[in-house]
């Protein structure tokens, strides 16, 4: 199957290109909002404030590139501070889950 092998070669080339791109720190990009991991105390406070269990919060994958530099553990809560041109600053929380 000569056709397929040709295709794969092209894909490999692409991947190499992408790899060189991944050296860019995307968390510094202006479109990526600020992510930070809550301390145990803050975590407790948050769950108490909204009267929810951990699994009721929105989720974020542990492999998410935006938090890869933060050393997340499953069960951590990530605070995301977003800027919206209409709504202004808004805070969002997501719980880290395993894949």
């Amino acid at each position: 199957m000569p056709k397929k092998s040709k295709k794969k070669k092209v894909e490999k080339g692409k991947k190499e290109k992408l790899r060189s791109h991944s050296e860019i720190d995307i968390t510094q990009h202006y479109l990526v909002p600020k992510h930070e991991i809550l301390s145990e105390e803050e975590k407790k406070e948050l769950l108490e404030k909204y009267k929810v269990k951990l699994e009721d919060l929105p989720k974020i994958l542990i492999t998410d590139p935006a938090i890869s530099k933060l050393n997340p553990k499953p069960g951590d809560i990530v605070r995301i501070v977003r800027m919206d041109p209409v709504a202004g600053e808004s805070v969002y929380y997501r719980v880290v889950i395993e894949e």
Partner: peptide, 14 residues
């Protein structure tokens, strides 16, 4: 089921 989708409705509660 009580799962949170947004913490403030629409980001600004308006």
């Amino acid at each position: 089921k009580g799962r949170i989708i947004q913490f403030i409705y629409g980001g600004d509660g308006m």
